[in-house]
Design a protein around this nucleic acid. Structure first.
Length: 535
RNA sequence: GAGCCGGUAGCUCAGUUGGCAGAGCAACGGACUUUUAAUCCGUAGGUCCUGGGUUCGAUUCCCAGCCGGCUCACCA
């Protein structure tokens, strides 16, 4: 193909040397890009299995700490099935190579970790052994051989055969890894650290930073735990439209797109809420969706324009029921992620012990501002927000002002899991009025480490009241609040058919993952975060 | 959007009070049959982010821009 001539042009010089090796391989009739390899063993579990077998056999014991190859994604990777011999076929990426002339050691890394491979010329034969000269760090190789323990005590595969599975033409920014013999801690020397490069080339980041792989593996475990928790309770997972004729369910600016054949504007969803409640109207009485939502807002370490949202709705339940459900969900997920009911986030010890603390929005804010938030005139509210330096208040109504004050005065102190309950009505256009307190709604948010994790309410199911709330939002919109919600006539029609009493919850999955994996930036829990256009 | 910090070899970084650009690792050549940050000898490698300006001379100083990080604003 024509690309062959150009393939190396943008490679660094190091890569050009690899192009020459590729040509040399071709000359020797060696396929540099194989089709498959029959893998029977994996790095970490095969080593663990070998050590266990030694223990049983009364052979050498206590030498297990000598190595340091077991630095994989899963420290205690599952043992490989019984009945294994020491023989097998391993495949992985070559991440270390130490040649000694007529023999050589390589470190082979697969998804479970690393295993050392030992090549000897008198085992492999001159031909095969000389092929090693054409390998590079980053190459994928397959090895057949058997496990033994080296003089230094390292469990190692003695290679009887090996083959190149895929040639790496571009050098990976592999850092050298040192394992402290006493603590067993891995120290990476001069690894791949530049954040911009890591985000833009996540494939390289993942390839060389096992810790990054571990975070994303945990992310998957968290999502799996959410699904099984809800599935077990009879919730049905559904898919609702990403492309919507009207957007709603949250206060945010949308991405706008255009459908050519229909010649009409469509919006990328900012929330799933209104569609999921339509399903409750339809009689699907427990539904959930885990999906990407899109908000056309700023980017910072807590916000990415596309992010993952979990929403679930349960008929015949109110927000008290949902609080209990959220507690159970969060505890279950934390256990799945970290094996315990706690975590450390940026130095703060978080304990997920039920019941979580509860504070009232109005009372906690009232204490902080020394006055009843509901009675303070809007002018004064505005002044108090301004004096705290919170900037753009254009179009902000009472609700938004109160929320800003809450964010300034109360939110940072909510480190341990805390439900903030009973939000003012103007802040919650989709929530049901609180029983006995018509200026409030039956709504709660869950805060952990000062960040909002969940938002939930007893859903407003009175179509007449809902229309009035939408109209209030429309007024705010007319006054300049670009994030106020729009009237959704079809949604009101659905309510007119009858929405049973329903409790609903939204949880930001990315933030939950940040919390449980102790990552300071949302970019570190999204595989390919949104970046500016760059090289 | 604003402020601060940063962008130098493939990677991690140092440096130049304005005068031929540095280290470690990686790479390349050589030695080495139990090493593991292997070691030893040797070699090569640069758009100092981009574009202007000042200057005999700019990677360095000035201006503008691009990209990233942090903080703020925005984002319940």
């Amino acid at each position: 193909m024509a690309e062959t001539a150009r393939a190396g042009d943008d490679l660094p010089r190091v890569g050009k040397a690899r192009m020459e090796k590729l040509a040399a391989l071709r000359e020797r009739g060696v396929a540099a890009f194989a089709y498959s390899f029959d893998v029977t063993r994996h790095a970490a579990p095969s080593v663990a299995d070998f050590e266990e077998r030694e223990g049983e056999g009364g052979g050498r014991t206590g030498a297990g700490g000598a190595g340091g190859t077991r630095d994989g994604d899963e420290a205690g990777a599952e043992a490989e099935g019984g009945g294994q011999t020491t023989r097998g076929r391993w495949a992985g990426r070559m991440v270390g190579f130490r040649s000694h002339g007529k023999s050589a050691f390589a470190d082979l890394e697969d998804h479970t970790g690393r295993v050392q491979v030992y090549f000897r010329r008198n085992v492999l034969g001159d031909d095969a052994y000389s092929l090693l000269e054409l390998l590079d760090l980053g190459d994928w190789i397959g090895v057949e051989g058997s496990l033994f323990r080296t003089r230094m005590g390292q469990v190692t595969v003695l290679a009887e055969e090996f083959e190149l599975l895929s040639k790496s033409l571009r050098p990976l920014p592999l850092g050298k890894v040192e394992v402290d013999a006493e603590t067993g801690e891995r120290v990476t020397h001069a690894g791949f650290a530049d954040r911009e490069s890591r985000y833009r080339q996540r494939y390289a980041d993942l390839a060389v930073n096992p810790d990054v792989r571990r975070v994303f593996r945990t992310r998957t475990r968290i999502v799996t735990a959410i699904r099984s928790f809800l599935d077990d309770l009879g919730f049905v997972e559904v898919e609702t439209p990403v492309l919507q004729p009207l957007y709603g369910g949250a206060s945010a600016r949308p991405f706008v797109t255009h459908h050519l054949a229909l010649d009409r504007v469509l919006y990328l969803r900012i929330a799933d809420e209104l569609y999921l409640k339509r399903l409750i109207v339809g009689g699907m009485d427990r539904v959930y969706e885990i999906s990407k939502d899109f908000r056309n807002e700023g980017i910072d370490r807590f916000h990415n324009p596309e992010f993952t949202m979990l929403e679930f709705y349960q008929a015949f339940a109110d927000y008290e029921d949902m609080m209990e459900l959220v507690e159970r969900l969060v505890v279950a997920v934390a256990e799945a992620a970290g094996g315990s009911r706690g975590c450390t986030f940026q130095g703060a010890e978080i304990a997920f012990e039920r019941p979580f603390a509860r504070v009232s929005f109005v009372e906690s804010l009232g204490e902080a501002m020394e006055g009843d938030p509901l009675d303070v005139p809007e002018d004064e509210l505005r002044a108090r927000v301004e004096e705290r330096g919170a900037g753009d208040l254009a179009g902000a109504g009472r609700g938004k002002l109160l929320d800003k004050l809450f964010g300034e005065l109360v939110q940072p102190s909510l480190v341990q899991p805390t439900f903030v309950v009973d939000y003012p009505k103007e802040l919650s256009p989709l929530a049901k009025e609180k029983r006995g307190a018509p200026r409030l709604t039956e709504r709660f948010e869950l805060f952990v480490a000062g960040e909002e994790l969940a938002n939930a309410f007893s859903e407003l199911n009175d179509p007449i009241a809902q229309r009035a709330r939408f109209e209030d939002q429309a007024a705010l919109r007319a006054a300049g609040d670009a994030e106020a919600q729009v009237v959704d006539e079809d949604y009101i029609r659905a309510l007119e058919y009858g929405l049973p009493p329903t409790g609903g919850v939204g949880i930001g999955v990315d933030r939950l993952v940040m919390l449980l994996t102790d990552q300071a930036s949302i970019r570190d829990v999204i595989l390919f975060p949104t970046l500016r256009e760059g090289e």
